[in-house]
């Protein structure tokens, strides 16, 4: 939304964000380091399986954040949205299907209903964000700051701050089961990521998202329905939160407001690390997946080393600062080479 002049910065000129090769290299180096530090412990199927169960939650939430950041926006309400969706799903589930029993056909129907209701909720919340951002013209950070507070508040009112738990076993399979050895959450995440990637790179909507991220006015002058594109961005973000919540509640076997609150800012970091330009217009799904893998490897590796999980969080922040300094260094060198 800023004026054209402000967009002429260095990072945009050079494509912005991180470089896929740097990320891949970093991932390999990290895995190598952990393999050496943890001989026989790190490079095991069990480690990777554990990672594959943990990554999808943050992954889906990071996708929800990243799609809004591509347009130069942000969605601070992703965690609130996910929890709301989880609460709706959980409330319907616990009221219709008794927990811990095998599920019949009617039960399966209720499970489907509960999940659909949850996803519809997240879609509607995305619609609300989209409306405020696209049609009322509120800056995304403020709009979603408001809806975050509001949605969280409603979730607290609905649950009185309590945990809703006790889901049927079939539901728990979503978070904990596997298909042919592949953890279900990972399957959900990769399928979703692929779908989002295709939407972004192979549809008119996706091209418009990148164009809007770089210059909303010029995109509108080209005849693109900017408002409707933005609206759909926030709706997609909502749905992605919904998917994240389904994975999350089935892994925890419970739903509550305030779950995963610490993920909010981490998703921004993951997006930027994955090459999403905070100013909008640049960033691709593969980069994001690489960034998430880096964060996950650091987290799992340090965990195996017995390091506090909080140090992991500190290290995540450190990695962002490291990568951005690296990018700055490289781009200034590239610039001097180009003009030479």
């Amino acid at each position: 939304m800023t004026d054209g002049g402000a967009r002429f910065d260095l990072r945009n000129l050079l494509g912005g964000g991180s470089d896929i090769r740097t990320l891949a290299m970093l991932l390999v180096v990290l895995m190598g380091a952990f393999a050496v530090l943890l001989p026989g412990e790190f490079l095991r199927a069990a480690t990777f399986q554990a990672m594959a169960f943990q990554l999808p939650e943050l992954g889906l939430l990071a996708l929800a954040m990243a799609v809004t950041m591509l347009t130069g926006g942000i969605n601070l309400s992703i965690i609130a949205t996910a929890n709301m969706c989880g609460i709706v799903t959980a409330a319907i589930l616990t009221r219709t299907v008794p927990g811990d029993v095998a599920v019949g056909a009617a039960g399966a129907g209720y499970i489907l209903l509960a999940m659909t209701a949850g996803l519809v909720t997240s879609l509607l919340l995305g619609l609300l964000n989209g409306f405020i951002v696209a049609y009322l013209g509120v800056s995304p950070i403020l709009a979603t700051l408001g809806t975050m507070t509001l949605i969280d508040g409603i979730a607290v009112v609905l649950t009185k701050g309590r945990v809703i738990s006790g889901f049927p076993r079939a539901v728990l399979a979503i978070g904990n089961g596997d298909v042919l050895g592949f953890p279900v959450p990972m399957v959900i995440f990769l399928t979703t990521a692929l779908a989002v990637g295709v939407l972004l790179n192979r549809t008119p909507w996706g091209v418009s998202v990148y164009m809007i991220g770089s210059n909303q006015t010029a995109t509108e002058f080209s005849g693109v329905r900017v408002r409707s594109v933005l609206m759909r961005v926030y709706m997609l973000s909502g749905i992605l939160c919904g998917l994240a919540s389904l994975v999350m509640i089935s892994r925890f076997n419970s739903a509550k407001s305030g779950y995963a609150a610490s993920y909010l800012l981490v998703t921004v970091l993951a997006s930027v690390l994955g090459g999403v330009d905070p100013g909008g217009g640049f960033g691709r799904v593969p980069g994001l997946i690489l960034a998430l893998s880096i964060l996950q490897v650091v987290s799992s590796g340090l965990n195996l080393l017995g390091v506090s999980s909080h140090l992991t969080v500190a290290l995540w922040g450190g990695i962002i600062i490291f990568i951005t300094s690296l990018n700055l260094l490289r781009s200034s060198r590239r610039l001097s080479k180009r003009s030479a």
Binding site: I74, I141, L265, V266, V268, L269, V272, P278, H310, L311, T312, V313, A314, L315, W316, G317, G318, I320, I321, T324
Partner: peptide, 14 residues
């Protein structure tokens, strides 16, 4: 916003 989110994690995590 990006830098301070990162430093939030660094300061607090440490």
């Amino acid at each position: 916003i990006i830098i301070t989110i990162a430093t939030l994690n660094v300061f607090y995590g440490l």
